[in-house]
Design a protein around this nucleic acid. Structure first.
Lengths: 201, 201
DNA sequence: AGCCGGACCTGACCAATGTCACGGCTGTCG
DNA sequence: CGACAGCCGTGACATTGGTCAGGTCCGGCT
């Protein structure tokens, strides 16, 4: 009774290393790999695996988007997210998307194999250290503030942000100002950095 | 005659995967691993390996810094850099630091093992796709411009940048202005993004 | 020597950003 | 209903950021 796994990760070398490692386990079978979001989704639909192991940040479609899409389709595959740093905002969205496991790339490698097995057995597994952090920092920003900050983070001037969102320039300034105040920072750059670090963008 | 390797990479899970993979090769021996720059340096000094395989971005000290330090000490270890995306500026600095190999994490996993062997045999190996890109984009910024842009990228206001560098505020503005002009962008945010993407910070 | 180019540094000026006080709208609770 | 709280949207005003036109100093070249 082997566990059939699909593996998605955009960095080819890391993907290869994870795949080689999972194949070493006699009860695991890596049936397909993918290097971006859409390919990951297609691979799951084609191979009908027990578990999808995926990175969050991938070209085209994030691992979270893939998980949400599978959820909508009623696909039976259980999803394990593997990500770089503890962006607590991601975890929140991941849980909303029905993700079954959430592991940090900082963790020791054995943990990955363990989580795949436990998730397949029906458990929901989240790195405990991260689970703590997720709840003490809820996103304080409104949708509009997030929209504006996202564009500002790319270096767009207020005028252009206003044009894209069909707002007055003063309004854009206002949203940025409230975002800056809520996050307790000094300007849009620090605000963008903090929001990004916490997975709020 | 096994090749003795030290492996440095800050993400524990990736480190573990690479280590497991290299250990599968009969002619390679992973004698130590490290999760930050200073530990990598210490591990090389203690174990005197043939090859150091290291990430660029690590806490404390970058892989490039470690390579430069080894070079200065006349250490015999040959250095292979493994990094995420093709930041051409990094490659330039890497070659200056006497690095022997440079591989992208996007590449297939087999390449890593091959490069380690070829580097140990005395070759200098650089991902050819990347080697091209490195020379068509030289860093146009002066040292001072880089200093200022680095701090601006962290969100510091001009006044504070001026204080840290013992400059007048007008001077800071001027450096940022020239950097913005040279890079052909609209503001400090875009300038920081571009410089980062190209490995110029 | 005199000239030139480039990095470094500066203040004055205008444009972009951040703050504030204010309305309109919607939903909730007594 | 009326009071309240929260999000959305706006213009006027102060602060910060970007541009310009210089100035000094140093090394290379004629």
């Amino acid at each position: 009774m082997t566990i059939r796994v699909v593996l998605a990760e955009d960095q080819g070398m890391v993907l290869g290393a994870f795949a080689a490692l999972l194949r070493l386990e006699p009860d695991l079978d890596v049936v397909a790999t993918a290097t971006d979001g859409p390919k990951a989704l297609a691979a799951v639909l084609e191979h009908d695996p027990d578990v999808l192991v995926t990175d969050v940040e991938m070209p085209g479609m994030s691992g979270l988007d893939v998980a949400a899409a599978l959820r909508r389709d009623g696909n039976r595959a259980r999803v394990v997210i593997v990500t770089t740093f503890g962006r607590s905002g991601y975890l929140r969205r991941a849980l909303d998307s029905g993700v079954a496991g959430y592991v940090l790339k900082d963790a020791p490698i054995d943990q990955l194999v363990g989580v795949v097995r436990r998730v397949h057995a029906g458990e929901r597994v989240v790195d405990p250290q991260l689970a703590m952090a997720a709840w003490d920092a809820a996103d304080p920003m409104t949708d509009r503030e997030r929209d504006v900050l996202r564009l500002a983070a790319d270096g767009l001037p207020n005028g252009e942000i206003a044009a894209r969102l069909h707002l007055a320039e003063g309004t854009v300034r206002n949203y940025l100002s409230t975002a800056i105040t809520k996050l307790g920072v000094r300007n849009r750059i620090e605000a963008a950095r903090m929001a990004r670090d916490r997975g709020w963008l």
